[in-house]
Design a protein around this nucleic acid. Structure first.
Lengths: 377, 377
DNA sequence: GGTGCGACTTGGAACGATCCAAAACGCAAT
DNA sequence: ATTGCGTTTTGGATCGTTCCAAGTCGCACC
């Protein structure tokens, strides 16, 4: 068996990867371990031709039912396994889709990946997984590697700071790409969440409860999803005639830990906000922890909303009001879209916007000053 | 482009899958969209033979440096993309590994998958993903589909209730399999956590703090990992001469929600336990929520330990004492193992046990009756 | 001026499937 | 016996790569 080992993942020129030369004979196993069975073996085994077996495998109506039965019996008897790579080579088709995510350990993407795989598996496709760990260099290497397996399409959630031109160069002109979750410069087929509307809904919900001093909490300034959510937040405030306090836009890494650490910034000046629209659920949960640590009670004297509706959101104390996007369904949708483009490459690229839904739970309470119907668990 | 659509995923006979017959000409795109470039195109483009280009691609020392430069320039110029499927077909080798997990949305497996992909990507392999959603039938279908892509090996975390013989039949005799996380009847290469030791360590830790009434909380009775952890728990109690109260082994689904719901069972009889060794972190976190809901304070008047050390464990209130198994490193380890067996199939199958480590945090406190140095945050 | 040799290069023949045009077969009608 | 026709079957050619044996080339040596 020949093994090619890649050395440097040349980030600059992903189209052409160099390998170490390894003498083919070097790793040769001494004994020939009875190669995998082929169409020919099956054909010989039951006295028909390759072509007939191939037709049987694909369920063609051309073969006589008697012949079919004989062939199927033989297939089962010898334990023949179809070689899809060979079939794809000849048929110039593919039966895989590549999924490249920036962070698999994020439960949101894990759910998304599960959705993609679910939809692909249903039609006999497989998912080629690539994870970039938010590194643009690894993303180039991963794309270069995946594209060599001739996937029917690529679903990409770009690493932060990705360059559209580099991605286009790595992927080449023949594979349809669906960009998910983040924006990428250039003309791409998109599947993006309606971040603005989501954040607007959450903010309007807080305004409706009586809040006037509302912060936007967490996320990176330069992340496109964060920017869009901030815009939705600002739009809602502007529409309600509420002024925006720049000091109430607090930047943190989008993790629970960082969000918990930065809570102090919310109360740096007087008057302090009475509610916060958070960048996502992780941040919101971190904020709740941080509030508790400072002696405040989220859902009672400070209102919090999140974004994503990750499984923990429903189980936190208090349960988190958030904006749901159903990542698994999104994964299925992404797979459907890439398959549609694969079947008809002439479909125009477009921007599909994912609808969002506000889920109201106990973390969003009226402001302490407002007297009224306070919900309690 | 020919599309084969699988109909019924025949669970019984996964070796031979039947497809609907679709007339090849039916879905034919009218315009021929300029096929992908091949070695031949590159060769013609710079006036050498296929063979030479092939040697250049694989970094062979046989080609003249001048020729190499010319070929590399041409490769870059036309944007040639290597067709690994064709290469694998000829070389009878493979550059992919299949990863089949029972539940991708579980952060533990997501981390594991990230580790696998990390290790594979480093040597230019790709990960074929398959997720079974804990369904034995889907597992058979997924295995049958993946094996057709001729992976170099399969890493399998079996769905609950898997039958070893069925798995062996679906996979065939030529692909090395590494079973992870769960036991599977038959002779397999294993990578399993040291569940007994982990639970024993946690239990001993609680005993060392002064607890005498310790429950085992959560998990399914018939899950092998749960059984092993229970055995470690029992071993520690027995070694300390503490009797086991059968009513303190409480069964729940291994989720946060279910664990939170069942808390009442812990306090059904008097005297009630003062501590609980939990099946895993999800259960432990659920238990903590349930305790709070009943007016008890975990880490102050009731001690809790978990298993897995998921990211949330460090961030819960109180932070969770747990047993760490470093899933990402386990993923890398699994990939290494499968690659080793791929390179030398004669390696004997074995059971590799993953070392575990007790991480002590604030959720494990001394029992309320014991007077002494109570830690506090 | 042949011979040998090292350094490169190259044209088929694979790999395991699909596709196509042609062949074989059975059977009824001429 | 021949023809025609519909149903089944089949042998190459092909997909894009790798491998191998055999090729070309330049040059030193006798």
């Amino acid at each position: 068996m020949v093994v090619l080992r890649r050395t440097v993942p040349e980030a600059g020129h992903p189209v052409h990867t160099r390998w170490n030369w390894i003498d083919p004979n070097l790793g040769m196993a001494a004994d020939k371990p009875r190669a995998r069975l082929t169409l020919n073996d099956v054909a010989r085994g039951c006295g028909v031709s390759r072509a007939t077996v191939s037709l049987v495998l694909r369920g063609s109506p051309l073969v006589h039912s008697e012949t079919r039965a004989r062939v199927e019996a033989e297939i089962r008897r010898v334990g023949y396994i179809y070689n899809r790579a060979a079939a794809n080579l000849r048929a110039q088709s593919s039966s895989s889709v590549a999924l490249v995510v920036n962070d698999l350990s994020n439960p949101y993407f894990a759910e998304f990946a599960a959705g993609v795989d679910e939809a692909l598996a249903a039609i006999g496709f497989v998912t080629l997984l690539g994870s970039t760990g938010e590194s643009v260099q690894r993303q180039q290497a991963v794309l270069a590697s995946l594209v060599q397996h001739a996937p029917a399409g690529i679903i990409l959630s770009p690493a932060e700071g990705s360059d559209g031109a580099s991605v286009a160069r790595a992927v080449g002109p023949h594979v349809p790409v669906l960009v998910f979750n983040r924006e990428l410069d250039g003309a791409w087929d998109y599947l993006v969440m309606d971040n603005r509307t989501g954040a607007r809904l959450a903010t309007e919900h807080l305004i409706g409860l009586g809040h006037k001093r509302i912060a936007f909490y967490g996320g990176h300034r330069d992340s496109s999803s964060c920017r869009e959510r901030r815009e939705g937040y600002q739009a809602a405030l502007a529409a309600a005639g509420i002024g925006i306090e720049p000091g109430w836009r607090i930047e943190t890494a989008p993790t629970r830990l960082e969000a918990a650490r930065q809570v102090g910034a919310l109360f740096a000046r007087d008057p302090a906000p009475t509610a916060a629209v958070c960048y996502n659920d992780a941040v919101a949960l971190g904020l709740q922890l941080g509030l508790v640590a400072r002696g405040r009670e989220p859902g009672v004297d400070f209102a919090v909303t999140g974004f994503d509706d990750i499984p923990e959101a429903a189980l936190s104390v208090p349960p988190l009001t958030t904006v749901a996007t159903a990542p698994r369904a999104r994964g299925r949708q992404a797979a459907e879209r890439i398959l549609a483009r694969m079947r008809d490459p002439s479909i125009a690229i477009a921007q599909q916007t994912i609808p969002v839904q506000l889920i109201v739970r106990e973390s969003s309470c009226p402001p302490p000053v407002a007297i009224g119907n306070r919900r309690h668990e």
